[in-house]
Nucleic acid binder design. Structure first.
Lengths: 223, 223
DNA sequence: TATATAAAAGTATGGTTTACTTTTAAAGAC
DNA sequence: GTCTTTAAAAGTAAACCATACTTTTATATA
């Protein structure tokens, strides 16, 4: 900003809130925290944190994510900024919203106990505080946009996976059933998956090949 | 934000910056202000303003736009928030960026003289201060996304216009030449344009029909 | 060896995009 | 009055892509 004085202007608290998506047991899930004090005690919220003096909102979000998950280099994307004057009854807080994608494995499931965090299926979320429901909905919309022209499996699935598992992930992101044959054709046409020699035989007698993302081809297709 | 104390946390200045796009003489243009004092004297910037205590960023942007253009209900969309700690040498300022679309007519051209504002062709912009170049580029990207599945003529063209004029607008937004026949077919297939009985004969001997947006059909196609 | 399962491959159709051609309306030249 | 010229407008044919559906395949288990 320029032209107007910096000194007479009011300042506000600036926070980040983050919709953390994961995929577990065939469902898209959202990591939520339960509020422990009044007001809104017992209600759930997205993960949030303040933006410190030496940080951008992006850095703050990455820091909060690292503190909670122990992971570095988490996929993170800015969604929107929420700034209604009375959105937070505790004071004037402007919040920059992000969404993050993480792979849920055994380690990640322990989050629940340590931080009072819990994974909720996006299809049946509890009541969220403030404007967090709207933040979630916008985040899911952005995730869908992203998933339309990018394969998001690498951020949400284990390192190796079958096409069927990838399709299940997409089914749960878009809340619809993709045709198995067409889905296979489509994702393979991206040309960023390598087929391994091993198969998953737990579902079918024939067995489904495992695939993994080819990082080089991913970069070439300018992700 | 919850869980952490509101009181010990630092507060920051919050501003909005707005990339105002217009269309004039066959070119997509951006409205810029020339900075009058050091530092960065003589350099150009997007239009900006502070977010007041009783305003959301959206409201602040609309207020600034109204002050500068005299127009109400300007098309306005949030792009992103810029929050690098040292992005503004004058202090810690977090800026929410918007882009706006306005019709440039005689009245709007006067802006220049009154506010030191000037319309610049997006193809040859001057050096911008701070991170404003990046703000512009992100804004243009969003405008292109928008124009892909929405006809943006109503926000940028006079009330009546020919298909050729609309195509020229799209040519300048996307920096490429659309095929006349295919473009016509495409935009008419949206089903939101009404053909008038009058023609523009200034360009061709045959004359091109004028069109206008049908507000009702626009609403039905849930814009 | 037969059966059952889902994976994987294949096919046929319809719709959309793209590049290109033809026809049209009307102003201005002759 | 007829001819020429212009870009608008309409039309066409091929290429491409999405979708629904069918057939073949590999393999564990009965």
């Amino acid at each position: 900003m320029i032209l107007e004085s910096y000194n007479n202007q009011e300042k506000y608290l600036v926070s980040i809130d983050c919709a953390i998506f994961g995929y577990h047991e065939g469902e898209l899930k959202l990591l939520l925290f339960q509020r422990e004090k009044e007001p809104e005690k017992g209600k759930w919220s997205l993960i949030g944190g303040w933006v410190n003096a030496d940080e951008s909102a992006e850095t703050a979000a990455a820091r909060v994510l690292h503190r909670i998950t122990g992971l570095h280099d988490i996929f993170l994307e800015q969604v929107s900024t929420f700034s209604e004057p009375n959105r937070d009854p505790g004071g004037r807080v402007i919040s920059v919203v992000f969404y993050a994608l993480i792979v849920i494995d055994g380690e990640r499931m322990k989050l629940s106990s340590e931080y009072g965090a819990e994974w909720w299926p996006v299809k049946s979320l509890p009541t969220l505080i403030f404007d967090h429901r709207q933040m979630f909905e916008l985040s899911l919309e952005r995730l869908r946009q992203k998933a339309n022209y990018h394969l998001v499996g690498r951020e949400l699935l284990p390192e190796t996976f079958t096409i069927t598992q990838l399709r299940s992930l997409y089914n749960s992101i878009f809340s619809k059933d993709f045709d198995p044959g067409n889905f296979r054709k489509k994702v393979l046409s991206f040309g960023v998956l390598d087929r391994l020699d091993t198969k998953d035989t737990s579902v079918s007698k024939k067995g489904a090949y495992y695939y993994k993302f080819n990082e080089q081809k991913l970069n070439e297709s300018e992700n």
